[in-house]
């Protein structure tokens, strides 16, 4: 009963603090504190409810236990992180995104490629990852290379479509201007069209961050060496070690947010000129 009352108390206190904060003028501190307090409140209520209602840790372990497991298995989690995020997801992300940008430039240059390759790209995007992953594991082996291959396939299409779209996002006047300078194809590409395409390219890059992480983790379900976040999750579920599953989820959440945040930060510095970014300087 005490835990349940604690849950109600945590809810009321968190609510009180945030509604007080909301009434104060918006500043860096209040903008930061609001979400933090909300998150802490959710975790506290979770903890109290799980303990108060005596929920089985297999269904939902309390946050304190997840934190404990997280702290106790840091070396393990780090090894999984390196295997899945750094080797699998990041490699695939870099390869897939750069290949997509290069192909987008080629598609833009030669319209017949647009008719031929864009449908192939959308076909690839339509392939279900759980069908594709086992095949790629067969082709590229159990280690991270096959995971990177899955990620390449997943990030390729959104990146391609966004870049193709961005490259055609120049006004007639801007192209006329380059023509009056007698600027050739490459100069027009580098001085006008690629910079103009940057907001689109970053859209693709941001979408691709989450896809890369999902791809790398899910691909490990279809065969991997004895490390990796997806491998750990599937093994731990079998052992009913849900606290370790949750710890891996925490790692994935932190890695995913950091990845997305890093790309968003890069976007802000590189496309500061775009109307969507200007207000945030």
């Amino acid at each position: 009963m005490g835990w349940l009352l604690g849950a109600v108390a945590a809810w009321l206190i968190g609510w009180q603090i945030n509604s007080r904060l909301a009434r104060r003028p918006l500043s860096r501190a209040t903008a930061f504190a609001g979400p933090v307090i909300f998150g802490l409140t959710v975790i506290l209520i979770w903890e109290c409810l799980v303990r108060g209602l005596d929920i089985s840790p297999v269904l939902l372990p309390p946050p304190s236990q997840i934190i404990q497991t997280f702290g106790a298995s840091l070396p393990l989690l780090w090894r999984d992180f390196v295997q899945t995020v750094v080797k699998g997801a990041l490699t695939g992300y870099v390869l897939g995104c750069s290949a997509a940008v290069l192909l987008a430039v080629a598609i833009d240059r030669f319209p017949f490629l647009k008719r031929g390759l864009l449908p192939v790209g959308s076909f690839m995007a339509a392939l279900p990852i759980i069908g594709l992953a086992p095949i790629l594991v067969m082709w590229f082996g159990f280690d991270w290379q096959s995971k990177a291959a899955v990620v390449v396939v997943m990030v390729f299409f959104p990146m391609l479509v966004n870049t193709v779209e961005g490259l055609s996002d120049t006004g007639a006047m801007q192209r006329d201007l380059m023509r009056t300078y007698a600027a050739g194809y490459w100069k027009t590409l580098f001085k006008l069209r690629l910079p103009a395409a940057m907001p689109f390219i970053f859209n693709g890059l941001k979408i691709a961050t989450t896809l890369a992480l999902i791809g790398a983790i899910v691909a490990e379900f279809f065969g991997s060496p004895t490390k990796g976040m997806g491998f750990r999750i599937s093994i731990s579920v079998g052992q009913l070690a849900m606290d370790l599953v949750w710890a891996e989820i925490v790692v994935a959440a932190i890695a995913g947010s950091a990845f997305y945040g890093a790309i968003a930060l890069l976007e802000k510095t590189l496309t500061f000129w775009h109307p969507s970014q200007r207000g945030r300087m």
Partner: peptide, 24 residues
């Protein structure tokens, strides 16, 4: 050639815009 709208590239400074034809 001067167009109806200024058509300066927003990712370049004023100086950068004027340097554009010179770079090309």
């Amino acid at each position: 050639y001067v167009f109806q709208a200024a058509g300066l590239y927003p990712w370049r400074t004023i100086g950068g815009n004027i340097r554009l034809p010179l770079e090309i």
